[in-house]
Design a protein around this nucleic acid. Structure first.
Lengths: 224, 224
DNA sequence: CTAAAACTTTACAATTTCTTAAACTTGTAA
DNA sequence: TTACAAGTTTAAGAAATTGTAAAGTTTTAG
């Protein structure tokens, strides 16, 4: 299901956009200001974010900038809503990493087709680059740096995510400690003997302990 | 990213090779003498090592020999640089486990294509290495460190797996105790006389006792 | 600058694997 | 038959490896 987040300070507009997008089968979430928007984006990890530019406190441009700072939103599609007469912002909007802008007043037809076009474009890029990896009951989304088990979002810190990604890159293959160490820490970082174990432990805690198997004296493997 | 380590005592040559390889997108590291080369090899774990043969103190041949002693370099590609008039060393170079040699003066084109060919070859061998060994009713999967008999998964501890792998590497061949001892424990570990027997017994217990035959006074073999 | 999160280390506990010692078999030659 | 040589089996405990909680350190977000 495609998740869309809309951030706008006018409830009327939220309702209007929401209604039209839901009718098309999207899962729509809304926020009434920039701060809530940022928070919600992190919580639901939408594929597409629609930001009104003109908002009190934190405007859309700033929200976009802050989103793009976080790696998990590097490839999220962000589009702006602009009043017709503030088209000067186009430049700035694209500067901070926006993908498109939609001019008010918004016609439902235009909105829908624009949104679909954006998602389609993104989908192509995604297929080309990095697909979502599915193993057993997990979906691992490299772009968004998140793991899904069913509907549940499992947020993993960087090292744990890398570790999982490594193990899952070849399900079943046994990775030696050396191999893990070299691939994740590299040759110029020195970490103690128990570091890998501890990360493995945390991973097991979060994704379930059956999946990662220990082979004593050899290494670890992801069993599926 | 493919890492290449070049060891040569002449900076000009290092620069020249380095420049040409980097242009092709390789990650190049250099060392000015054998000792540094060995150290650096251990630190960066390159896929390919280029060694000049003529070097003061420790020459390329010796560096290669020392590298090959360490298991982590068993499958690293090592190639030599030789002056045209010292081609007598070819023999020695291949003796100590070199994969190829490149004659000076070096032409960039030759260098690049040779390096690429070597890396390609290695990749194929790696794939080869990943093959599952099938003997009689067993499938031995090195990647997963597990044995399959039909649908049944047989997990073996490290030593037993190594032992099976050894016996199965040449089905029918008789391995003496000495040979087994040397290949699995190596020369610096001392274990008692009965240790091999016990491991053989456990293997028989798990994979069936018909397959491993005892030849009294001689050794063991895997019958198929 | 502070708090929180992420990461690493430490110090033991727990577990698995390996080795050994000793009793038991088997084959064989005197 | 007996004695010996070689191998097998068993069970116990040594050794090696990994798991865990908690504390310490570093990084990041606000």
């Amino acid at each position: 299901m495609t998740k869309i987040l809309i951030v706008d300070d006018e409830e009327d507009i939220l309702d209007f956009l929401s209604y039209n997008l839901k009718k098309e089968g999207f899962e729509v979430w809304t926020a009434l200001n920039g701060m809530d928007g940022l928070e919600m984006a992190n919580k639901i990890r939408p594929q597409l974010i629609i930001l009104d530019i003109m908002m009190p406190e934190i405007d859309g441009i700033e929200v976009c900038r802050r989103l793009r700072e976080q790696p998990q939103f590097h490839s999220t599609i962000i589009t702006f809503l602009t009043a017709r007469d503030e088209d000067f912002t186009q430049i700035k909007a694209l500067d901070v990493g926006g993908d498109d802008y939609i001019a008010k007043p918004i016609k439902p037809q235009v909105l829908i087709s624009r949104v679909k076009a954006l998602l389609r474009r993104n989908k192509l890029e995604e297929d080309d680059n990095e697909k979502i990896i599915e193993v057993s009951d997990l979906k691992i989304d490299r772009q968004r740096v998140q793991v899904l088990r069913g509907e549940e979002i499992i947020d993993l810190p960087k090292k744990e995510f890398e570790l999982l990604l490594l193990l899952v890159s070849r399900p079943g293959k046994v990775f030696t400690r050396e191999e893990i160490y070299h691939k994740i820490w590299g040759s110029d970082v020195i970490v103690g003997d128990r570091t890998i174990d501890v990360h493995i432990r945390k991973l097991r805690e979060k994704i379930g302990s059956d999946q990662i198997k220990t082979l004593k004296g050899i290494g670890y493997k992801f069993d599926f």
